[in-house]
Amino acid sequence: MSIFDYFRSKSKNTSASVAKERLQIIVAHERGQRQQPDYLPLMQQEILDVIRKYVPIDQDSVNIQLENNDHCSVLELNVTLPDR
């Protein structure tokens, strides 16, 4: 690093910090998926199909999450219905 760079490159948004931030997000996301049972995506699809029989909704409006606590698992189902 020369004397000229010395004054210039003190900004915080270095490419390394961008890399770290992106990695933290994607790794956390993938770890969450890893703990899910294999049947979850298929179950999500089937639940979606059942709801669609009655209400027109799209793929993104159903959100399924499985949370594991000490002695039980909670299946959280979040469906956004369209405005009437």
Partner: peptide, 16 residues
């Protein structure tokens, strides 16, 4: 390159 902010540091990789 770590010092220049162009490469993830040991600490960054350990954190992740």
């Amino acid at each position: 390159r770590v010092q220049a902010g162009e490469m993830l540091s040991v600490q960054d990789v350990e954190d992740i």
